[in-house]
């Protein structure tokens, strides 16, 4: 029989590819709605970050005393012997090149610093980064496995506590944090910033003449700085989550498009094979009839 098996094989293939496209389409929609929420959360946390920057820069302009010593342990700049790097990544894959780009950027940073310092340690937050750094044999100081899709401020706090304690105890001299910065729905950029020692934002506002501080500026600084560090890590995590969902949305859309294209190619091949089969059968019948009559 002309192509009977071929026709069936193509039909099965169409069925399987189109059900794949249904799955990827569903994942695209889920990611799109999660992206909206993740983006809203990132935007909602911005006013706090902005006001924190403003307050801190103002305070720094008052506390920048000339005696040379740092006003707070978290501001202390030391020669970097021990570097810690907080690697924020997604918990799940299927997000295009998102995770591998981030992992490459993180590993690149560590390899770049390794020859110049005594020790570099990684603190992965997120499953994909953790698995990567475990495999590649870097020195892992602590792990924060899964933070979930919508982490809370309180989920991020332990990370900040850990690095601040280590920094004040002198176990690490510099702390960096790496995350996927959300540029827009189509573009995410691996970004690495320093969080310790704290670099106070530059003050541009004019100082008011009489400022009342309660308690003293130094004590205010001591309550502000830890919150500043926590807020920076929290903001990085929120950005990373928005990036993850948008990368997944785009990856799944591409997969859906590819699957649909494949279905239409296969449908064409299927119709062709089916028609050839029918033509063949017709010829057989006509030939059979002709033979009987003849």
């Amino acid at each position: 029989m002309a192509g009977g098996g071929g026709v069936r094989a193509i039909r099965d293939r169409i069925r399987s590819v189109s059900s794949t496209s249904k799955v990827t389409r569903a994942m695209e929609l889920v990611a799109a709605s999660k992206m909206r929420r993740a983006q809203e959360r990132a935007v909602a946390s911005r006013p706090y970050a902005e006001q924190m920057n403003a307050v801190l820069s103002q305070l720094a302009s008052f506390t920048a005393g000339g005696d040379g010593g740092p006003l707070h342990p978290l501001l202390e700049r030391r020669e970097v012997k021990n570097l810690a790097y907080i690697h924020i990544s997604a918990d799940r894959g299927l997000a295009g090149g998102l995770n591998s780009n981030m992992n490459r950027a993180g590993a690149g940073l560590l390899l770049e610093h390794q020859p110049h310092v005594e020790r570099v340690t990684v603190i992965p937050a997120g499953r994909k980064g953790r698995d990567f750094f475990r495999r590649s044999g870097f020195d892992i100081a602590a792990e924060f496995g899964e933070l979930g899709d919508f982490p809370d401020f309180s989920d991020v706090r332990p990370i900040a506590r850990l690095v601040m304690d280590d920094f004040i105890a002198g176990k690490v001299d510099q702390v960096m944090v790496g995350y996927q910065r959300f540029v827009n729905a189509a573009v995410q950029r691996p970004t690495i910033i320093q969080i310790l020692p704290v670099l106070p934002p530059a003050g541009t506002e004019a100082k008011p003449v009489d400022f009342i501080f309660e308690p003293s500026p130094e004590e205010l600084l001591a309550t502000l700085l830890p919150r500043f560090v926590e807020m920076q890590i929290y903001a990085a995590v929120l950005e990373a989550r928005a990036s993850e969902q948008s990368a997944r949305m785009v990856a799944m859309r591409q997969a859906t498009d590819a699957a649909n294209e494949m279905v239409s190619d296969l449908t064409l091949a299927y119709n062709k094979a089916r028609q050839e089969g029918i033509t063949g059968e017709l010829l057989d019948i006509v030939g059979g009839v002709a033979a009987l009559e003849g």
């Binding site: 009489d210 400022f211 009342i212 501080f213 309660e214």
Partner: peptide, 15 residues
């Protein structure tokens, strides 16, 4: 302690 802020208050920073 409790602080009441009215318009025209002096510049203040407090926890």
């Amino acid at each position: 302690g409790q602080i009441t802020v009215l318009p025209g208050h002096a510049a203040l920073m407090s926890s």
